[in-house]
């Protein structure tokens, strides 16, 4: 029972952090209908911004998260405006050239970070990173719990932003029907830039939450990118609730796979879910929950 409980709790807590990273991607995919392979690399940049703030000013990653999000918002906006927008919506033989562009951007960003920070593994541990408390034979790590709570707050705030404000409604309108939104007076280009920047900032927030419990190096993002896709497809594009439930589900499924099957196959669990959802639940959990 302790084994089961521990596995479940660990899965839920890590799933919350996955959800924040993925919610950014799901927004971008929802509005732009393209796969953004630079998302993971931008999360990594966010981690490095927090790390630099931690190293030079001793700013705890949870506080460094705010400047990191602002900086990444800017980077996201610039990338979208000056690079991705150029190929966005252009008639080409294969629309996937945009996907490839985002990937090349991601790999390029990785190399820039490597030049600045070297390839060394770096971390921002504080005594807080190792703290945990015990609950009926299960150990609950405090940084995981705090990360989870912040993550939930972000998802809730984003949900409110999207459903209760004009800006958010324009984002949703653009996602649902770009042309119709344009006719209704929404500046779709601006909204797209905003969405991309917001998604990037959220990725940075997720990275900042990972920093106290994990570590960073320029290629840290590869597994997280894969997880983002899985969650996006699992939850349904453009849905915050979908991303949240998808993130939690993936976190739990992975940890159960690692505990009861084999730690070596933990990523396969996610990938199997991914393909199954694509085949049997197109549209993702969004459809089931009814948004």
């Amino acid at each position: 029972m302790a084994l089961f409980g521990q596995t479940f709790v660990t899965g839920i807590l890590i799933g919350g952090i996955y959800a924040v990273i993925a919610v950014g991607m799901t927004l971008i995919m929802g509005v732009m209908k393209i796969i953004n392979l630079a998302h993971g690399a931008l999360m990594m940049v966010g981690m490095y911004v927090c790390l630099a703030l931690f190293k030079s000013f001793g700013l705890h990653p949870y506080l460094g998260m705010i400047p990191a999000m602002i900086i990444l918002f800017g980077i996201g906006w610039l990338l979208q405006k000056y690079s991705i927008e150029r190929v966005f919506g252009v008639e080409t033989i294969l629309p996937e050239s945009q996907v490839l562009l985002t990937l090349a951007l991601g790999l390029g960003i990785t190399e820039i970070i490597r030049l600045i920070f070297t390839s060394n593994y770096q971390c921002a541990y504080t005594p807080f990173s190792a703290r945990c408390f015990y609950l009926g034979g299960m150990s609950i790590s405090q940084p995981y719990l705090v990360g989870f709570i912040i993550a939930m707050a972000f998802v809730a705030a984003l949900h409110i932003l999207l459903t209760r404000t004009d800006l958010g409604r324009s984002v949703i309108a653009t996602a649902q029907d770009r042309d119709a939104a344009t006719y209704m007076g929404v500046d779709a280009k601006r909204i797209t830039n905003f969405t991309f920047a917001l998604g990037t900032a959220l990725a940075a927030a997720g990275g900042a939450m990972l920093l106290p419990i994990f570590y960073t190096y320029p290629d840290v993002w590869h597994p997280y990118l894969a997880k983002c896709f899985i969650i996006t497809i699992l939850g349904g594009m453009g849905s915050t609730v979908g991303a949240l439930s998808g993130g939690l589900l993936l976190g739990v499924a992975e940890t159960f796979g690692a505990t009861y099957w084999s730690p070596g196959y933990r990523d396969v669990v996610g990938l199997i879910i991914f393909v199954l959802v694509l085949l049997f639940l197109p549209g993702g959990l969004k459809k089931v929950i009814g948004r």
């Binding site: 393209i34 899985i230 990523d267 990938l271 991914f274 393909v275 694509l278």
Partner: peptide, 28 residues
């Protein structure tokens, strides 16, 4: 047979997932 039921980015992603799955299975 499985992936051709999907289109566009979904097909691309499912192939990506398959590639990763093969890598992990061959590793383990």
């Amino acid at each position: 047979l499985v992936t051709f039921r999907l289109r566009g980015p979904y097909f691309a992603l499912s192939m990506l997932a398959l590639g990763e799955t093969f890598r992990i299975v061959f590793t383990n």
